[in-house]
Design a protein around this nucleic acid. Structure first.
Lengths: 270, 270
DNA sequence: CGCTGGATTGATTACCTTCAAGGTTGGTGG
DNA sequence: CCACCAACCTTGAAGGTAATCAATCCAGCG
């Protein structure tokens, strides 16, 4: 089977500068003689990624078909309507996926970071723009390569299926947010989600007082993710700050002072 | 591999009345001696459904593991948080999938009809409510049965993957609509989508004048799908009617008078 | 014929957007 | 080192649009 039924067109139109995609393992720090097995096993993305269920020689062989590529901040990984030549796993950095209307209105459909797969929702062509928010390293497979690997490694296919399920659930959650939540609920929701995913702190434990949340993306990005204007985002964050629920270290570094209150707000219970 | 990694909990809590799920082929009209092969092959949903790539004895065997079930208007197929015991394919009728907030605010995440698969975005539990809009017939597989079938029939798995891709694209489109489109654009978009999917007319052909669109769902459903209030839905439809772009046969039966204009409006180009 | 639920229309309000200005931060170059 | 600049963020004021509140209309049905 194949991830997309459509065949790839003959004339690929690369989005990002081509040819800077270094050979696999080139980005491996230091010791080039390190066994392949250990390389992918020690990858920061491995635990959450498509390859998470592969180990040993399977992992090494699967990984050997991939390449690392580095994208600088602001650069496009691909654009909507581009032929889908590669699928990607984010190793480090942050990517925004977005769709646009002709007049410039934009909806960010998701932020992708370490371990996330990029290429879901593709039918031979990409259906969104993918841009690097900061310096990003991705692990890329060509579409035919990955499709063949899916047949060979059923655990990879299973993991992909699982990741697609998670994506559908995420998108449904976000639809509820976009369609029915107030700006305050949207912002609170966004901050809580960020805290859960990226703070590394177990929020379910008691005695949680403060949680650091880093926002690599701009206010404009946040606005386009939540279906708001940049001014409303700013004002709402200010309101949360004045209420003492959060504090701003810098514009991109928020400290949640009262995570429980923020969760209540996020779910419309406050 | 399995569609969901999570195992199903021991105590299933059925949403719809159980036991009315008739044995497979019971709903077959008339001749009970008709060969199995022909039954599924002549199913109204087959062309678009999960089983669309199966033929002959494979199709018959696959189909023999399913049951048909009929749900009356307003009845729940399942509720959010229910253990996911079955996956469904809609044979006839219309189903709405929705998520709710505690205070009753609701977002409809999709309308499902003939051929559509219900069960995407599930992690052992359903993540949305599924309700019958009118009388609905579904073809259901138990979760373990379908998971096993996916391993056995790779074409089914491929089709499922493809359907998940389509679903992700749909959801992303709808996020753009919810987050960034005006009420007028939302309504126009909705009508055009309905026309494309259900009118049976090829809209790309020239010389298209009028297109009939049936809306089985209520205005409340439309509002909760588009992130609007019922009043705004009604007012916007009225505006389109007064502009001559559409006409109302009845509240649930709309005639598109100018499909091109409606498409322009839907994409913010008018 | 009256009843009921859904749809439409009307009037008012609140909220978010828009338009506009000021403030902050980080980088660059003199 | 500091001034300057640009980009981004925040704050303010005004206005419009969709939500809310409320009444009427309409179709289906007992």
């Amino acid at each position: 089977m194949s991830l997309t039924a459509a065949n790839i067109a003959a004339k690929p139109k690369p989005a990002a500068t081509e040819g800077n995609g270094c050979q696999r393992f080139n980005t491996m720090p230091g010791n080039g003689a390190q066994p392949k097995t250990n390389y992918c096993a020690s990858c920061a993305a491995h635990d959450k990624a498509l390859c998470s269920r592969l180990t040993g020689s399977d992992l090494a062989e699967f990984g050997s078909m991939s390449q690392h590529k580095t994208i600088t901040a602001g650069q496009m990984l691909f654009s909507e309507y581009d032929d889908a030549r590669y699928y990607y796993t984010v190793i480090s950095g942050d990517v925004r996926l977005s769709r646009m209307l002709d007049d410039g209105r934009r909806q960010i459909t998701g932020f992708k970071s370490t371990g996330d797969f990029i290429g879901l929702g593709t039918d031979g062509h990409f259906t969104a723009d993918a841009e690097a928010i900061n310096e990003v390293v991705v692990c890329q497979f060509t579409v035919p390569t990955l499709n063949q690997s899916l047949e060979e490694y059923s655990v990879v296919q299973g993991r992909l299926m699982e990741m697609m399920q998670e994506e559908v659930i995420n998108l449904q959650n976000h639809m509820l947010l976009l369609g029915r939540k107030t700006p305050m609920e949207k912002i609170a929701n966004f901050l809580v989600e960020r805290a859960k995913k990226y703070s590394g702190v177990d929020l379910d434990g008691d005695a949680i007082t403060e949680v650091d949340v880093k926002l690599p993306m701009s206010r404009t990005d946040v606005a386009d993710f939540l279906g708001l204007t940049i001014e409303t985002v700013s004002r709402t964050i200010t309101k949360l700050r004045k209420n003492g629920v959060i504090a701003l270290e810098t514009a991109q570094h928020i400290v949640i002072k009262d995570i429980e209150e923020l969760e209540l707000i996020a779910n419309g219970e406050a």
